[in-house]
Design a protein around this nucleic acid. Structure first.
Length: 644
RNA sequence: GCCGCCAUAGCUCAGCUGGUAGAGCACCUGAUUUGUAAUCAGGGGGUCGGGGGUUCGAGUCCCUCUGGCGGCACCA
């Protein structure tokens, strides 16, 4: 008997019945057989050593492909689990999946692991690789598998089979020789030796069983694994690069802001950071004005009864900063701007002719975020949103959403952020509203995205509890993804707070509200662009745009004059007249990432010139003062005010 | 909030198995007036995160609190 095997290029060959993918790979080429880690048989993943069961289409997966890496990493997780269980008897395994650049395994053990254990565990993992244990797949019947795991004290595995695996699904256990075995879907490598040693344990963390805070907390060990040592080194280098751009580090180095113990999650903006903030605020304000928004300002603190009406008191009380006055009033700092905006909408009578009303506010909000979630500027307790609410009729939703999406794309482009896709967050499990409502609302959001020329990616269950939302996902300069820019539909709040307008028919109607933000919060957005630009802001954003450095005291007067003219031309300029060598000043201001250094010495002062040096370059251009002012003024224009 | 790790000068860090704190940069003073990524010399600066304990003796060991970091959970 023989079977027919078809390859991706369409070629076909006959093999003995029961041939394995590994044998097939060997028949093609030795080097291929070395690199191959698994196969796809008729599209389904298949172990290399698992005999084929008939005619099939085959696709071989090599170790440095995306799918191949996943298999290596999954094996690394198994090898980790074996190592841990050998070194720490009594530890239970739970779940050990692949991550974006590695893997983790969650263990249940009473005593805590320590990162000091990593060396020992890694060494044992390498021993297991050296032992080159065959990895064997066995198929089990459900009750037998449960009994097996119970018998060896693996309660979590038994529970997984009992509760998670659907009846009829095959239950497979992969074993490393006769030493160790784990419930697993597979596929896996033929033997542990194939894993190689390009892996490293990275960090230790707590994680809840099945991701639920109500369950036991397990100990998670994270690792990274790659096809070869070179890839591992590259990855570790990338991590170092990312660390250098960390906005918390840059914030201190560049003297933009700081935070301190007494105000966890609160930012002290220093002069330079605040200059950056104001630049962003002016920019986005112009963009919003051009897009037909009005701007308002609502109170920072409001009475408890207000938040009771809005529903926040009942639902979000524990995240609100509440205070009591001597007159026994209970007040809360606003966690959101929307209820305030509804009050402005409700002031006086609204006509359908006024809609849509696009009401913006740079609203400072306070939310009591859990202490463990705070993270630099990215997650804070006091922040200012570039918030706006669009009040409109139902038939205006699609156009308003589409128009907003276009605006967001424009803004992203101005900051060098590359749009990757838009997520459409659909109905979550806990939600308000009927299925008919959600069908309609989700369809409207999807249509709006298409109107803006974007096909949304469905993010199942990711919507707000009252309506679906669209989120932008962008990539920064080193390929990391950020969620930035969001719009959410809301029928609930206008209803709750009684917002109405008089329609064409003379009757009262409920408007719909669209909650939307582009930056999200100034704090977080500044964090994102700091990391995106690695602190080297383009001219229009740089807190100091031009640094005028003198060579000798003879040029001090001229330097002051140059700075004065630059400031009059709207540039942010400073002089460095310290008694230091020019090389010292250039080094210092280059490290501070100042975009332009203008060097002035005796020669420049006499000829009324400046020698300009751009950040990152070594060349200098000597221009007359007037030419330099013209050129720099042009360069410093915000993108929305640029000519041409 | 939960789990693990960490906390020494303004910053980055050294300080072995307990014997009473050090470097570089920054800062201040002086000299130097300098031509494109660090001029030289001198000086000041730390109740070693707070509190408690063990010990003849604690930066070092133990407990506890606070904060930071990495995850988990949360993110209206």
């Amino acid at each position: 008997m023989s079977i027919n095997i078809t390859f991706p290029d369409g070629a076909a060959r006959a093999y003995d019945d029961g041939a394995t993918p590994l044998a097939i790979a060997e028949s093609l080429s030795k080097s291929l057989a070395k690199k191959v880690v698994a196969a796809k048989i008729d599209g389904a993943l298949w172990d290399l050593t698992r005999p084929l069961e008939g005619d099939a289409k085959i696709e071989l997966i090599v170790r440095d492909s995306a799918e191949g890496l996943d298999i290596l990493r999954h094996d690394a997780a198994h090898v980790l689990a074996q190592a841990v269980q050998e070194l720490f008897p009594g530890t239970q395994v739970t779940f050990g999946p692949v991550t974006e650049d590695g893997f983790y395994y969650d263990f249940a053990r009473d005593a805590p692991f320590s990162t000091d254990d990593f060396d020992k565990i890694e060494q044992r993992m390498k021993d297991i690789v050296d032992a080159d244990l065959p990895i064997i797949r066995t198929v089990w019947e459900k009750q037998a598998a449960i009994a097996h795991f119970r018998a060896i004290g693996e309660i979590y595995k038994a529970e997984t089979i009992d509760e998670v695996i659907k009846p009829g699904d095959p239950i497979t256990i992969y074993s490393h020789g006769d030493k160790w075995g784990d419930l697993c879907r597979g596929p896996h490598l033929p033997s542990t030796g194939k894993l190689g040693k390009a892996f490293k344990l990275m960090k230790l963390a707590g994680a809840y069983w099945r991701g639920d805070q109500a369950n036991a907390q397990l100990q998670r060990i994270y690792g990274t694994a790659w096809a070869d040592e070179k890839q591992l080194e590259d990855y570790l280098k990338r991590l170092e690069e990312a660390e250098k751009r960390d906005h918390r580090k840059l914030g201190r180095q560049m003297n933009l802001f700081h935070m301190q113990e007494e105000g966890r999650g609160m930012v002290f903006w220093h002069e330079k950071g605040w200059t950056l903030w104001r630049t962003l605020e002016s920019y986005i304000r112009r963009r919003l004005e051009a897009a037909g928004y009005i701007e308002v300002k609502t109170p920072q603190v409001l009475d408890r009864t207000f938040w009771e009406k809005s529903g926040h008191w009942e639902k979000y009380r524990e995240h609100m900063f509440v205070c009591e006055t001597v007159e026994a009033e209970t007040l809360s700092l606003k966690p959101m701007n929307c209820p305030g905006h509804v009050q402005i909408f409700k002031f006086g009578q609204r006509s359908y002719r006024e809609l849509p009303i696009r009401m913006a506010e740079f609203g400072a909000c306070h939310r009591y975020e859990p202490s463990g979630s705070l993270h630099g500027l990215m997650r804070v307790r006091a922040f200012t949103q570039d918030d706006a609410h669009i009040f409109c009729r139902e038939d205006q939703i699609e156009d308003e959403v589409a128009e907003f999406l276009r605006l967001v794309r424009l803004v992203h482009g101005d900051f060098g952020l590359i749009a990757t896709h838009i997520n459409l967050g659909t109905r979550p499990e806990k939600r308000a509203g009927s299925d008919e409502f959600w069908d309609k609302a989700e369809a409207m959001m999807a249509n709006a995205a298409r109107k803006a020329g974007i096909e949304p990616v469905i993010a199942e269950g990711d919507g707000a509890f009252y309506a679906p939302k669209l989120d932008f996902i962008v990539k920064d300069a080193i390929g990391r993804e950020w969620t930035c820019g969001t719009i959410q539909l809301d029928y609930v709040l206008p209803d709750r707070l009684g917002a109405e307008y008089v329609g064409e028919d003379g009757a009262k109607h409920r408007p719909v509200m669209l909650h939307r933000a582009i930056f999200g919060s100034f704090e977080r957005f500044i964090g994102i662009i700091m990391e995106n630009y690695a602190g080297a802001f383009p001219m229009w954003l740089a807190p100091v745009q031009v640094l005028v450095a003198t060579i000798t005291q003879d040029a001090d007067g001229y330097a002051d004059h140059v700075v004065d003219l630059m400031k009059r031309a709207g540039l942010r300029a400073e002089a460095d007249k310290r008694n230091e060598k020019i090389g010292y000043k250039i080094r210092e201001h280059s490290l501070a990432k100042t975009p332009v250094i203008a060097v002035v010495g005796r020669k420049e002062a006499e000829e009324r010139k400046v020698a300009l040096r751009r950040l990152g370059g070594e060349a200098q251009t000597v221009l007359s003062l007037d030419e330099a002012l013209d050129a720099l003024r042009d360069e410093a224009q915000p993108p929305d005010q640029r000519r041409g």
